[in-house]
Amino acid sequence: MLVLGVLRRAHRTPLRFDVLRLPSVTSRGLRVRQNAQISVSGLRLESTKPKPSSPASSQLPPPQFAYPERLCVYHAGTGRITFLACLKISTLFIFVFFGFVVTPAYFEKEGLSPTVLRTTLSAVIPLLFVAYTTSPFVSFVHMRIPPFARQSEDMLRRFVRKLPPDTELDVTSMSFIAKPRASRVKLSDLRPVSRRLGIVNLARDTAAENATRKWYMFRAVADFSAQPSSNTVRRAPWVWESIVDTIKKQQV
């Protein structure tokens, strides 16, 4: 009987251990399954989630143009511009020297004499002559062109062939002290003329623009000297010739 009891106990103990280990094994299996399901669902979510667009792909490259927005159609030449600027400044120095140094010195010694008159004229005449002949001188002319005309030379030629009247031109001239002075005009405002011994070949009406300016501001430039033969532009020099021809046709 004792032997049978011992044998029975020996057979029952492994079963108890197996029964005790069963919950832990099943819990581990459930955890593994849950982790596998979570990882699979995460992979599915990551795969189905739309990828954000990169900044390089969202930003398209800017279109390439053959010509800039402000095309230089007239250039008087670097040498000519430099010479006239130096001439204007030199004339101012001559006016200051003869008008405020030499003339007062002779006036103190001789009073109102022919020498005083000559020194005064030596100061005033060069200043007036240079101002009269060089004030309409044009250094640069830039034309604003639309995007479609900037794509190629063929498109630019088509645009220039039939220029609209509201085409804007930025005309840069010289002020009294050789400072650049820009004037924005429309093509329809210009007309061909012959003034100041043939120096001025283009003009416009500035009455309305001067009416809006203050009394202390300079008057708008009305006369321009931009001869087609003086153009030194190497890139598309035919544009300025077409502009001058269009202005002549408007006058007719």
Rank of each mutant, 00 (worst) to 15 (best):
F98A: 06
L117R: 09
W215V: 12
V40W: 10
R181C: 13
L2T: 14
T246M: 02
N210Y: 08
W240H: 01
F176Q: 08
P136T: 02
A220C: 06
D245M: 00
P68W: 02
E69K: 09
L128D: 09
E209T: 15
G111L: 03
S53P: 13
T172Q: 15
R16T: 12
W240T: 00
F159T: 02
F176T: 07
V138I: 12
L43Q: 14
F159C: 02
L20T: 10
K51V: 07
Q227E: 09
T91A: 07
F107K: 14
A56K: 12
P147A: 09
I94G: 04
V25A: 10
P165V: 06
L4I: 12
C86E: 05
L60W: 12
S139Q: 06
T206D: 06
N231C: 03
Y132T: 13
D189K: 07
I145R: 09
S194T: 10
T167V: 00
V200P: 00
S24N: 10
L84W: 07
I177F: 10
F17A: 15
Y216R: 10
F95M: 15
F224H: 03
R219V: 05
G79K: 05
A76D: 01
T115L: 06
D170T: 02
A131M: 12
I38F: 04
R235N: 08
P62Q: 06
F95D: 09
E241F: 02
S41I: 12
A131Y: 14
S39I: 08
F107H: 11
S188H: 12
V171I: 15
V102T: 02
S173I: 04
V25L: 10
L84T: 13
P180I: 03
S229K: 04
I94Y: 03
T103R: 07
L163Q: 06
I247P: 00
R196F: 08
L169A: 00
S41C: 13
L20E: 12
V124L: 03
L7K: 06
F98D: 01
V233G: 04
L156Y: 03
G99D: 05
H142E: 11
K51G: 09
Q64M: 09
Q151G: 08
P114S: 06
P228A: 07
L43S: 14
K249R: 15
T134I: 07
A182N: 14
D205F: 05
G29P: 05
R150W: 00
